[in-house]
Amino acid sequence: MYKKLLKRVFDLILAIIALPFWFIILVIIGPIIYFQDKGTIFYNAPRLGKNGEIFKMYKFRSMKLNAPDFRNEDGSTFNSEDDPRLTNIGKFIRKTSLDETPQLLNLIKGDMSIIGPRPDLPEHRELYEGNEERKIEVRPGVTGYNQAYFRNTVPWKERIQNDIYYIDHLSWWLDIRIFFKTAESVLKREDVFVTDKDNKSNNNTGL
């Protein structure tokens, strides 16, 4: 009942309640992003959704225009506090997770859930092995089990197995625990950035 219906109802209710507060963030953050390099405010990233459907995930743009794409050895996106691609405001919104707040629009559209596996890039589906495609059995989340308890400290393949654990144990109580643990880690700004620069590699697929 919760997984099939109530989870979606709760997503919509909370997103609609949060929307006016997000508009305030947009009015403050949006012009700062634009005037730093006269670029677009949003970054619309293609991502894998439920059952493999591709959707546009909305974020505030935190990187400079035409920034190159860095990847870790496992194919996941490179993320570091001293990343030269980040704008000044980009560093701040990454640290505070404000760059993720436009995903309220994805919640309302039904692309995402508040809690769920973080969505992968479309090309990552080709790298799934064994049971890893189970990750796309549910809507991806704005936050999830990995983000709450590990942030960016575990490899991509391990994150997928954590996502499958979440799917197998999905419940109202688990979502509540993840929600408050996420809030705690965001407020403490724990493990926001990956510090191992040696894991990055270049490709042409975009961030």
Rank of each mutant, 00 (worst) to 15 (best):
A148K: 08
I25Y: 14
D168H: 07
R125G: 09
I114D: 06
T195D: 11
M63R: 05
L121P: 03
I54H: 07
L127R: 13
D191H: 15
E126W: 01
M57A: 13
S97T: 07
F92K: 01
K91M: 06
F180T: 03
K135E: 08
D11W: 08
V192L: 04
P68D: 08
D196W: 07
Y149W: 09
W173S: 14
G141D: 00
I33M: 04
F179L: 10
F92C: 04
F180S: 06
G75M: 07
V186C: 05
D168Q: 11
Y34L: 09
F70T: 01
R8F: 00
W156C: 08
K109I: 05
L65A: 15
T101A: 11
E81C: 02
I178T: 05
L14C: 10
V138K: 03
R118S: 06
D120Y: 12
P31G: 06
L127P: 00
D111E: 08
K4M: 10
V186N: 02
D37A: 08
W173I: 10
T101I: 07
K64C: 09
E137R: 13
K59Y: 06
K197E: 08
L105M: 13
A183K: 10
N199F: 13
F180M: 03
Y165H: 13
D11F: 07
I164C: 04
I17T: 02
K4C: 02
V9A: 14
Y149Q: 01
N204E: 13
F60P: 11
L98K: 05
R8Q: 04
D175L: 02
G130K: 12
R159S: 11
E126D: 11
K4G: 00
E133K: 14
